[in-house]
Amino acid sequence: MDNATGERAGYRRSAGSPRGEARRLELLAKITDDVAENGLVDFSLRRAARAAGTTHKVLLYHFEGAEDLLRQVVFSLRERRIGNALTAVADAPATLTDRVRAAWESLRDEESELRRVLDQAMGLAMYDPGRYAALGRGASRQYLPTLLSFCPSHWPEQRKFEVASMILATLRGFLVDLLTSDDGSGAEAGFEALLRAVEREEAAP
């Protein structure tokens, strides 16, 4: 991956300009599509520039560097995952248990490329936290609001946070199991146990 710290000297950011922001989003969408298809291995500003049909200097005008660009790409891919889950949940009954089931089915059946890239991002955060910690920290902050919204509206905020955090951590573990096991039977069995725990939470006063 390029170290853009020195390269970006002399380039100004496009933030604040509507035209510049529109161009940034256009570039980001093209690069995100490339990463979704080809993964994070050998990601660099120059590879991103080729995917976007521009130069790495243009990217440095719109982004702070390779790591900033990577963070925004991963954020965009997580937004795709959240959007897919919300679409699935929209047709589910209003109970937390049914919403969690629908979200899990969306995660379980999502395109393998998307899951692979997001797993790679978490791997980078664990392998080199000094450089990529934001990729790991950002995941919980990005996913939790959706899970909080699934919880019954009358629950106290602390209870919502506790239950949503339990669901998030458990589902992320199941996704790792799906990635590393042959048939996914362990994840499915564990998920049924999670649903029973969620049902007990919903039934509690």
Rank of each mutant, 00 (worst) to 15 (best):
D33M: 03
S149A: 15
R80I: 07
S17N: 14
R80Q: 14
Q142R: 13
R78M: 08
V176F: 07
G39C: 06
L114V: 05
N84E: 14
A52L: 10
N3G: 01
R116H: 12
R71H: 13
T95H: 05
G39H: 06
F63D: 07
V35N: 07
R196F: 00
E64H: 08
D68N: 15
G39L: 08
G123L: 15
T97Q: 07
D2L: 07
G186W: 10
G16D: 10
A203V: 06
D2R: 13
S76V: 00
A189G: 02
I167V: 15
P145R: 03
A15N: 10
E199A: 15
A189C: 01
R13P: 00
L77M: 12
R108H: 12
R78A: 01
R99P: 02
A187T: 12
A92M: 05
D2N: 11
L25N: 13
R50K: 14
R131K: 15
D33Q: 12
A88V: 04
R8G: 05
E188L: 12
D2P: 00
L28N: 04
T97D: 04
G190T: 06
D183E: 11
R80L: 09
L195F: 01
A49R: 11
L107Y: 09
C151E: 04
R115E: 08
S17E: 09
E188C: 01
T32W: 01
A193G: 03
S14V: 09
I31A: 02
S185A: 15
L77Q: 09
D98Y: 01
V74T: 08
E162G: 03
C151T: 14
L144Q: 14
K160S: 10
D42S: 09
K30Y: 00
A88Q: 03
R8S: 06
R46H: 08
R115Q: 12
I167W: 07
A48L: 13
K160N: 05
A134S: 13
E110A: 12
S140N: 03
S17F: 01
V176E: 11
L69A: 06
T5N: 07
H154V: 12
A164Q: 10
D182G: 09
A36C: 04
L118R: 06
D34N: 06
G20C: 11
R137M: 09
R71C: 03
G6C: 01
R19F: 10
